[in-house]
Nucleic acid binder design. Structure first.
Ligand code: FES
Ligand code: FES
Lengths: 144, 144
DNA sequence: TATAAATAGGATAAAACTATCCGAATACAA
DNA sequence: TTGTATTCGGATAGTTTTATCCTATTTATA
């Protein structure tokens, strides 16, 4: 469904958010360990998220990644997915037609659109805060 | 969402079904042209579908691909997706955890599962016949 | 200022997916 | 029986995604 890069990006964002509540900046190494991802690859994804303004990166000693505490609740899953995988999952045709067009629909258009719209709604209405809180309370997990 | 191979597989199956109602066997060349796909790659996918018993292939002159007329209505989209892409889209964790487990859920489990289950339901309750009929009546299209 | 701890970013490699090529096998028809 | 149309299947090539490596740059602290 999502690319590996996107999966790592979502998990990393949650972990960073969690720590940002405590004003703890987290290092690449700590992130990769916590979400069980390859370090260098994760670095690229974090750079991407930083360029998109979703997370902040701080270079140098005592540097790392963080998210503005007050922004966490307003960051939607859709922003992360969009930054990494683009918008084809929302807008693209399920059967690969050049565009998804109501006036020139593919055979699964009506049925597929329903699912796709629900996914879109879910991503646009889920924020980092609620996901981070579930990790904190031990209700959900980032690895294994 | 689906792989290119899967998209081609679905479109090819619909086109074969459509022709099988008229007892017309269709060649690889005709299929690739109709669904706008690369011929040799499409051949591999058709072989795969044939091995899974979803379509029948007939070698030699006047050969080609066909589907038993009476089976068309009972072939579900899920069978095609499963044959080509496997079942990870139904069963896999949205964030790539080793398994999707209610007892050890990832942060998006509850929300993702709803969408995934709806996709599953859609694929399991859509058959080749209805899709072929929409093409026949000009309501939907296989390319462009 | 020197050192150490970090991220940034370019180059490269490995793996997966998509696509192509070509000879072998098969089956129909003249 | 021979020729032709067709799928089958192995080998190969191209592209994208995933992953790694190494050097440059930045920043806090001693
Ligand atoms: S045209 Fe295919 S999903 Fe809309
Ligand atoms: S554990 Fe991730 S979707 Fe169920």
């Amino acid at each position: 469904m999502f690319s590996k890069a996107c999966e790592y990006g979502i998990k990393a964002s949650i972990f960073i958010a969690l720590n940002s509540y405590e004003s703890n900046r987290v290092s690449l190494k700590a992130i990769a360990k916590e979400i069980d991802s390859p370090e260098a690859f994760t670095a690229k994804i974090l750079q991407d998220l930083a360029r998109h303004g979703i997370i902040n990166s701080v270079k140098g000693a005592y540097g790392g990644f963080e998210i503005d505490k007050h922004a966490i609740a307003s960051i939607k899953l859709s922003q992360i997915v969009n930054a990494i995988d683009g918008d084809s999952i929302y807008k693209g045709c399920g059967l690969g037609l050049h565009t998804c067009d109501e006036l020139h629909p593919c055979p699964v258009h009506d049925k597929f659109k329903t699912v796709r719209d629900e996914l879109k709604f879910m991503l646009e209405n889920t924020n980092l805060e609620e996901l981070a809180l579930d990790i904190k309370s031990g209700v959900s997990f980032l690895k294994t």
